[in-house]
């Protein structure tokens, strides 16, 4: 099979590493060759962060390039627009509706582009924008936003929900399993 590409993007500190860990476990369990690439260090301090997950029969490059992503999961609206060029023409962006002002907006040097996603949709980009924070709070913590988004992603991927649940159990500490399973279920709704 052709290598599939998923990108997880957001703001440093939002918890994209757990989402990539979960995807890694899931796809290894499914028997795929998997590569996951992260960026640590300076850019984690509130900067724009990106994680790549690639899977297939044989994966070479650890990174995803422009025009290659089957899915982009974004924790924040502006970051979805920033990484939109990485999407394949037939790919899909799943984005949490949260907005976090970057420093140029905070200092007043630039405006937050509130309509950027609508403009991309008008150009034919497939964007699924959801409020992942409210279901996460319902499940028990704002920190479960990432798992709500994974629940949403699971609707578009051909892997049974039980397999996802198994991977969640393998990825989080025992005391957080129930909360994350709830978040996953709410994301699938």
């Amino acid at each position: 099979m052709e290598t599939k590409n998923i990108m997880i993007v957001g703001v440093g500190g939002q918890g994209s590493l757990l989402a990539s860990k979960l995807l890694g476990k899931l796809l290894v369990n499914e028997g795929y060759d998997v590569k996951v690439s992260e960026v640590h260090g300076m850019s984690q301090r509130g900067g724009s962060v990106v994680t790549y997950v690639r899977y297939g029969d044989k994966v070479y490059s650890p990174i995803v390039d422009k025009g290659e992503a089957d899915f982009i999961i974004s924790f924040e609206r502006l970051e979805a627009a920033r990484y939109a060029p990485f999407l394949r023409p037939d790919g899909k962006i799943i984005v949490n509706s949260q907005e976090i002002d970057p420093m140029p907006v905070i200092t007043g040097a630039m405006e937050y582009p509130h309509e950027a996603l609508e403009h991309l949709q008008a150009k034919g980009v497939d964007i699924d924008c959801i409020d992942a924070l409210t279901p996460a709070l319902e499940a028990g913590s704002a920190k479960a936003t990432n798992i709500v988004l994974m629940g949403r992603l699971s609707k578009y991927m051909d892997i049974a929900p039980e397999k996802w649940e198994e991977a969640i159990k393998q990825s989080v500490a025992p005391k957080f399993v129930e909360m994350n399973l709830r978040a996953f279920a709410l994301g699938r709704k």
Partner: peptide, 17 residues
């Protein structure tokens, strides 16, 4: 490869304290 770019000005998000 073909791809779509946002026409909006996307502010950079550098790391911050």
């Amino acid at each position: 490869k073909a791809f779509t770019v946002s026409d909006d000005q996307i502010p950079v998000r550098p790391p911050v304290m």
